[in-house]
Amino acid sequence: MLCANCGAENIEGVDQCEACGQSMQRDRSHLSAIEKSMLKDRISDLDPREVLTVAPTASVKEVLNLLVDNRVGCVVIAESGIPVGIFSERDVLVKLGNSPAEFEDKPISDYMTTNPETLESSAKIAFAVHQMDMGHYRHLPIVDQTGVVTGIISVRDILRYLNEKIAS
C-alpha cells in the first residue's frame, strides 16, 4: 500500500505512513488536479533562481544598487554561504529614511531581518505556500542539506506555477 504523500511502501491497513507520518486513511480522490500537484511537486520543480548574496559588512548603498541593477526584490546576507539575514525592498521602505546620507554607508547587517526562514529544494510546493502565507514572506531562500544557500523562490514563482496549472 503506497503512501499518497511520499510514495513509501506500507503494510496494508496501517493508520499512518511509517516514512512520513501522514495518515494513510485520508482519501485524496476528491482533491483537484492543482491540489494534487501542489502536494506532489517540489520546490526544485519551480526551478529556483540564482540568489544574490552579500556579506553582512556590505554597505546599504552597495545593496540598493545591487537590487536596482539586477531588478530583484531581495538579497540574502550570508556568511560562508549560510544565510544570516535577508533584506528586501519592503525593508527599504520600512527601515530606511528618506535621506540616503543617513544610511548609505552603514552595514546592511544594521537593517537586515536576521535568521530568515529557509526551505530545502525537496520541500513540497504546498508547504512553501503555507510558509509564505503564515510568515507573510515574499521570498524564501533555498538551502542544501548543509544549510548553504543555493537559490531563492518568490511568490511570483508560485503564481507562475499556478498559472501553468490553470492553463493545462
Binding site: 507520518g21 501522514q22 482533491l31 501542489m38 513540497k124 508547504f127 503555507h130
Partner: peptide, 10 residues
Amino acid sequence: ETIYNLPPTT
C-alpha cells in the same frame, strides 16, 4: 487539508 497537514519534506 492540503496545506496544513503536511511535513516540510519527505
